[in-house]
Write a protein that binds this DNA or RNA. Structure first.
Lengths: 215, 215, 215, 215
DNA sequence: TATGAATGAGTGTTCATTCAT
DNA sequence: GATGAATGAACACTCATTCAT
């Protein structure tokens, strides 16, 4: 039975078709961007007619939201699965970063959808993503706070953790983007570089070795 | 005032018209995003008919590129104007960061165009932005390299500077975004937080105080 | 109850299925109009899958025609059943009108399908309706002609009977519509009003008491 | 300058284009019905591109509403212009009917849009039409009431005038439809038939010559 | 018998872009 | 220099209809 025949004949269960469609959508959204992606192209790539997309996943907006949701869930799962919460905070951050960069390296299309497309869309699509980003920042923040607290809380440092967490997350995203153009660098090296910057910088902060304009 | 007079008054020099148009375009692009911005709305906001836009600034893509170009030039100018190249590298970075955050705080629309819209557009529009981002990363890289070199070049550190510079730029962007939601924090505090993270972390790196999984 | 049993229960005889489908179709057509009614909604309301509708009643057009046919047959039956052909023409008209308004009062959905939807469809769907309307006009015409003939045929009057019959039928339809907005008026009063207008006016005509511009 | 050239070259003022578009829309709506009429066909018939329709008249719904509005205004104007309010009620009704049938005879497309299409559309399109129909019924009602009052008010008769007015209007509409299939009958004859039915029947009513089941 | 799965064909609508004036 | 008038081309979305099971 040829591929053609299979396509023409098989009535696949809904679940399978939905996956096909989402795969195609992630690919096309990542390549063309949300607005330049056409439902026609997505349906072509998915090997499915347009009405199926609307029947199963709803409007273009719904479809995009479903992509973001799936990919962000995958990313979170990958990161969470790579972290052992019983370890020390620095090891958790390290494992998390490694898992993050591994995911980005393997799922470039998914990452692009999350990072580049979802951010730039106003409106409700990006809620999912904004939420995920907040969760990521929150996680990093927790690690930083726990560390700062253990080491004798310095007021300046802890009040700043959320901002620093945002900075670290942004740094990670930016590094991931940079890495897309430098694929020859191994994932663990990229992770290590960020880890050094973030953790050592934060460590100095905790220990009171701060930089100041007049220092 | 006769119709003729009014007409004569309306015949503004090209330069002025272009500024009107670019102002309107930056505003609309920043509010609606590239694709949801319509040439109609831009011409309305600019108080100029559509054919004028095409005559002066070319296609929508050209117009967007011109916006990015102008805004990125402004940003670079602001940053460059705030930095004294005769000072030490850390002071340069500090002044640059302060100038950057000041600019973002004052030119939110312009920043949105640069950060959110330009990134997400594939294709030729974003060349301007990519170039500017590269220049920013390059500047930071230069500072880092100069510092590392002075202090006795450590191979690991220097090979990493570009990546770190990317990370710092990303961190700055992310912090700027975070700051949009926390406007009560003064610009200089935001800059200081990033400065601490980046400079102290980098300093440790240069001095060989690196973090490692087993360390 | 096993799946098998449930399946057996669901296998209703064709006749029942057809009634279910027609009931649903009349309801949906009457609520949404022909074009805004979707086969999906009809199948939902009927509790039957779409392929069944096609198997039993054919295309949407066929289905609509079947609705019109059933409802017009019901209407005719109701009217015919209310009329005793051995009575005098005026009594026949009276009984017919009463039966007509009773039917409209009880079968609003069916009446809407007949009156509002079927009329506005060009093409073949409305053949059923046009035929029924012709039959209605024909019946009234017969009564008028019989009366006119008995009383000594007046040329003017008889040549006009068909037009008058059309007018009476239209008046009845319009009154029925008006009645939908005045449900407090009893059916027999509505019928009586029309009867007066039609019969007395016709009677005058037969007797030569005609209105004329200069009279 | 050929028609082709004129079409390609002339930039007609908005007013003219709007009339062209409305003319085409009335024609197409009347031929195909609201739903089967496509904006493509309307734009073809109008000799104008689709975007112009949207720019000048708005959505399909808006366009249809504009048609109904224009045609109903024309019809009212024609009828009002044919009636002299200083004449006796019967003369007014007579003149109004004549004007109505004249209009229908001359503007078949417009009449179809009003009568067949607008009625069958639910929703807001038909508001215009429903309002016009109400006005027509109101006008007839006024004539009947004035007559009944002058002749010594009979309670039964006056309470019924609104229903009778509805009946007369419906009869007129139905007769107009019937006439579409019998164009050989002159307009004034059709009007006279209805006038006889309505006025004589009503006159009997006023004078107490009513029909009753046992009479 | 009965249906979930699947689609071809068409619709309304928008938008960047360009003439003619 | 400046604009109202005009459109080609494309896109999201829907629906009647039919297979394969």
């Amino acid at each position: 039975m040829s591929v053609d025949e299979r396509r023409r004949v098989k009535r696949l269960p809904r679940e399978v078709r939905e996956r096909q469609i989402l795969d195609a959508a992630v690919q096309v959204f990542s390549e063309r961007g949300y607005h330049n992606a056409s439902m026609d192209e997505i349906s072509d790539v998915a090997g499915v007619s347009k009405p199926m997309i609307y029947a199963y996943l709803g409007s273009k907006e719904d479809l995009f939201a479903a992509c973001v949701q799936r990919e962000s869930a995958n990313l979170l799962e990958a990161v969470a699965g790579g972290v052992d919460v019983d370890l020390a905070p620095d090891m958790q951050l390290w494992d998390g970063l490694r898992a993050f960069f591994d995911y980005v390296g393997e799922q470039r299309a998914g990452w692009r959808v999350l990072h580049r497309q979802a951010i730039s869309q106003g409106g409700p699509y990006s809620d999912e993503l904004v939420a995920m980003r907040r969760r990521a920042i929150g996680l990093v923040d927790t690690l930083l706070v726990r560390t700062a607290t253990k080491q004798g809380l310095d007021e300046h440092a802890t009040s700043a953790t959320e901002a620093l967490a945002a900075a670290v997350v942004g740094a990670a995203e930016s590094l991931a983007d940079w890495w897309l153009d430098h694929p020859e660098v191994p994932s663990r090296i990229v992770a290590a570089r960020l880890m050094n910057l973030a953790w050592m910088g934060f460590g100095d902060l905790v220990e009171g070795n701060t930089w100041s304009p007049r220092g």
